[in-house]
Amino acid sequence: MEEYNALDMNNNEFVERKEDSFKKPSVLQVGVLFSLVVVIFLYLGTRVQKWNVNYGVLITEFGLILVPPIAYLLIFKYDVKKVLRLNKPGILNLFLIFWIIVFSLPVIGALNFLNYWVIKLIFGKYEVFQAPISTESWGLLIGIFVIGVSAGICEEVLFRGVIQRGLEKFGAVKSIFITAFLFGLMHMDFQRFLGTFILGALMGFLVYKSNSIFCSMFAHFTNNSIAVCLTYVSLKANEFMKKSGIKGVENVQNGDIFASFSEMSQIELIAVIIVYVMIFAFSIAWLYFLIRLFIRNNNKREIVPEREEKRTTFLHFAAFIPGLLVIGFIYVMDILRMGGLIEQPVIDRILRAVGL
């Protein structure tokens, strides 16, 4: 009986590995795809978003981020369903993912706070990107669709769908973290890179364990939609406080957390720190518990990717260089501007000279 069980286990393992041994994108191909999307995103996406923010984001997401990977899979005749992991996510998975994202927010917020603190130490200031949310009627729903739905679908197809698949030859862990690193870079915001990187790694983990890209899509949608809702509520609260003549709104509205802290008394500051530490510890505990449940629920869904023995040459990795150079150029311009080494008009002229 024990021999039969062992044989059955080996057969199941063989079936799982056989199912995973289909044609996958190569490192060279995903490198070319990444660089292509970065270039068209910066050269075309920024222009359409200046024309109209909401329509521009939708055109960028669906036209410039989603179309290239889908076209690539179809042109080179890949099995789209298998490459993208178009498998049912499961109701319990979606329930767990929602709460995983909810309890990950304080953790990611702490990482972003640390990121801001380092930036402020270096440059004496930091900048917070404000999502284009309107407080008018339908503003919230439009924001959720533009920032939550479109990004959740399009960016996940590119990163967790195609790029992570192409990097799986190095193993699951490396493919998840390299993809998360590229995901963080492409957001063009080094001031929140740490939080974005961890979020990308979390979504890559969810996809790998569940063998369904719909899990990362739902996680991405949930994270962005919660952020949109919080921004909307914050803007509404600021409008109310301004109309009511309440002072001290400027620091909150400009996102200057440290300026707000400096106005607090020592007791108030200690109280805020204690409360946030308690929230952080509570969130970490629940996050650990929920991730363990998620892993247990997906034990039979996870498929271990095959490792390739053949070495990857530098030429394959070189395909990422054009995209990384363009991103690096944008980051350098931001660093020089924030450091006061170059004035904004000079940066504008440089960007125009290179077509950005």
Score class of each variant (00 low, 15 high):
I226F: 11
Q164P: 08
A110F: 15
C229Q: 08
K125V: 10
F113Q: 15
T196I: 14
G161F: 05
N115F: 07
L111C: 11
N223I: 04
Q164D: 14
I144F: 01
F183R: 00
I213E: 03
G204I: 02
G109F: 15
F218A: 03
A172R: 08
G109L: 11
S175L: 02
L140N: 12
Y116V: 05
N224I: 10
K169N: 10
G148K: 02
F129R: 12
H220K: 04
P132Q: 11
F183C: 05
A151D: 07
I176F: 02
S244V: 00
F221C: 00
P106S: 15
W138Y: 10
T196K: 05
N223L: 13
V228N: 00
G139M: 14
A180R: 00
L235V: 02
F193T: 01
V157T: 13
A219C: 12
T179W: 01
G139L: 09
I226N: 12
F240L: 06
K169C: 11
G200C: 07
I178D: 02
F159D: 00
K247G: 11
Y116I: 06
N238V: 13
P106N: 15
K125N: 11
I144H: 03
D189K: 06
E250L: 13
I133S: 09
E250V: 13
G148W: 01
F177M: 07
H187R: 09
L141R: 06
W117T: 15
I153M: 08
H187S: 07
C154F: 01
S210A: 15
W138R: 13
L182N: 01
K209Q: 06
F123I: 03
I122N: 14
L141V: 13
I226A: 12
N224A: 11
L111G: 07
S134L: 06
N223S: 13
Y232I: 00
I144L: 08
I142S: 07
K120P: 05
L235R: 05
L158W: 06
F113G: 13
L202Y: 03
I178C: 07
V249D: 03
A201K: 05
G124Q: 14
W117V: 10
V233R: 08
N115W: 06
G161W: 01
K125Q: 12
G143L: 09
A219E: 03
K120G: 05
K247E: 15
A172S: 15
V107W: 10
M217C: 08
K169R: 13
G171E: 09
G166I: 06
I153N: 11
Q191M: 09
K125H: 14
R192G: 09
F214A: 01
G248E: 11
V249H: 00
I178K: 04
L182V: 09
V252F: 08
M186V: 14
N115S: 11
I142W: 04
